[in-house]
Design a protein around this nucleic acid. Sequence first.
DNA 1: TATCCTCCTG
DNA 2: CAGGAGGATA
Length: 524
Amino acid sequence: MLSDSAYYRSGDAGSSLMNPSKDNTTGHSPIRRHPIPASSSCGHDEWNLNSGHQAKRARVENIIKGMISSPGMHCTNVTRNQCVKSDGMQEKETIHEQDYVETSGFGSQRAGKQLENQHLRARFDHVDEVVDTIDKDESPETSPRDAFTDSYSEFQTSSSREYQGRKSVMSYFQSQPERIKLMAEVLKYELSRAVSRSVDSIFKSMPLIQTNIEGNAETDIRLQSSVGEDELGLTCCGNEVQVPDVQTEALSLVVQKPRLENKFVLHHRPQPPILFGNHDSEDQPSERNYEAVRQHALRCSQDACSRVGPAKFDTLRNSIKVRSKVNSRSVRSPQTHTVSVDRTLMESPGLPHVNIESDCLVKTNLYMLNEGLTTNHLKKAKLMFFYTRYPSSLVLKMCFHDVQFSRCITSQLIKWFSNFREFFYIQMEKFARHALIEGVSDVRGLTVERQSELFRALNMHYNKANDFQVPDSFLEVAEITLREFYISISMGKDRDPSWKKAIYKVICKLDSDVPAQFKSHHSA
DNA sequence: TATCCTCCTG
DNA sequence: CAGGAGGATA
């Protein structure tokens, strides 16, 4: 039997780090306040758009989704092209008439039909509100209450399809609610158009967009609109309007293949490096430049918003945004500042000219710090855990030099290691108890080898890809921890609520130095 | 008071 | 993994 002191290093343990307060049985209040949304933490940048716009956007989306899923809404298999482009409006008319017959009980027939129609009616009241908003935003001189016949006729026959529907939909609804299918089409079309215009606006205003896909390539993609500035407002649909047929989601609107093919020319020619930051000193990134990028993005967004109207713009906002909390999933290489574009946008099959491994990749001289931790950082932190279970903030800063440290980032890193420890100790306790149950009588029989089940569990957690050679020192620490748990449990110390505290006190002294490769500039 | 830790929960 | 509660420490 090994004595406890066998594992102890000399020295004072009076660190604040060792204050395990409770054991598992120590009760917390059974009533826990649930956390506020994660995005609220850490103060990452958000688009400072009016929250009312979000509400409007949500309403529009709800309305359209509701329409798509509503009974009697059979237009979902009809593409926007079919609805707008083809001279098949006659055909549409026929369909609508059929629907009219099917739902003609509005207000007078079976109760079920009444309820259904009341439901639809209520929905259209929302549409009324939204369309009013849109009208105010875009054409204040136009009354939303124009006669149905005029506007519907316009929708059907206008050679300038830019205008169709919007002015008319309300009166159209109010007079002929059974034709809501057409309304759905109109709204979908409007949304699509607005999003397209927004994309144009942003890409024109912010021609250089860096994106990083799958964390293995940063691509500077020169996006240029192939049309003139004056076309932005109206002729983004000049060729044809391609609107998703069923899934009227904002994102799918953005990534429509034909639109992008028609609209954007993705130049592959090498571009000069974009130097957002202070490239004289890696250790002193320019926060002002960093902020300038954000402000520029914000201005672009506001510009686009002013063009398309806030309600519509929010649809776009959902698709293209400056990453905040998402950074942990949006893998970005260090030393770059990116205005991330939603991956689905850049991965659109409609971007044949985009080579993710583009030669215009600009890595050098980009000394911007990440404002958030990425999955690569997480992976690195896990590997660091093989060396240090209780890293100091200094070590963290040395190893995550590419991150702009803030209280928030530090806390997150500390939390990560806390979680790592938690998993580590849980495994140790589990295997120690298992050994006791299996009748292991001598602590010397407890070892941690690379072939052992315990090691595999740990390796799976911290080194899932198994692409890192776990140092022997970690195996030693694991073995010591396992034996500590075994001894404590076998001695019945686990009856003490704070029995783990002594173990933690031992383990925290077994940290070793993190290899230099973790501190190098290319290790993240 | 700020920070860090463990524990618990989702 | 993140968030919160609650404790310990400087």
